[in-house]
């Protein structure tokens, strides 16, 4: 069994805004606290592309730079500010499990990867 891990720095509202600008994401819940509260969220939340980006980074770490891969991942919780994200890829020969946790112990996403 092989495990690959990658941990981000603490993600704050500035990191969320940086991601929104980098990806041309217009959704206000990532940058506007009031818009996030109106949507029923406690605060701004990070884009799902944090999870997608971590998945890509981890997949390439495990499979090699510029390797192709397939994936299936489900969101289990929001990307909240003030927390780091950790992705773990556990290669168990016939299947590769992926999980993204935040530094407060929350499960953000789970899924599978194949390369």
């Amino acid at each position: 069994m092989t495990t690959h891990r990658y941990v981000t720095p603490i993600l704050d509202a500035l990191a969320f805004a940086r991601m929104s600008i980098a990806t041309d994401d217009p959704n206000p819940i990532h940058v506007d606290h009031q818009a996030a509260v109106r949507a029923g969220l406690p605060s701004v939340i990070g884009s799902g592309l944090f999870v997608m980006g971590l998945l890509d980074k981890a997949a390439r770490s495990a499979a090699g730079d510029h390797a192709g891969y397939t994936f299936d991942i489900q969101m289990r919780g929001p990307v909240l500010p003030g927390r780091a994200l950790e992705i773990s890829i556990v290669d168990e020969q016939d299947r590769v499990a992926v999980q993204v946790n935040d530094s407060a112990g929350g499960v953000v996403a789970k899924g599978r990867l194949h390369y």
Binding site: A39, H66, A67, Y69, T70, F71, M75, G111
Partner: peptide, 16 residues
Amino acid sequence: DHTAFAGATGQVAPGA
């Protein structure tokens, strides 16, 4: 305001 990203399934081709 009531719609959220729930997950993704897909493939990424090899290459830079």
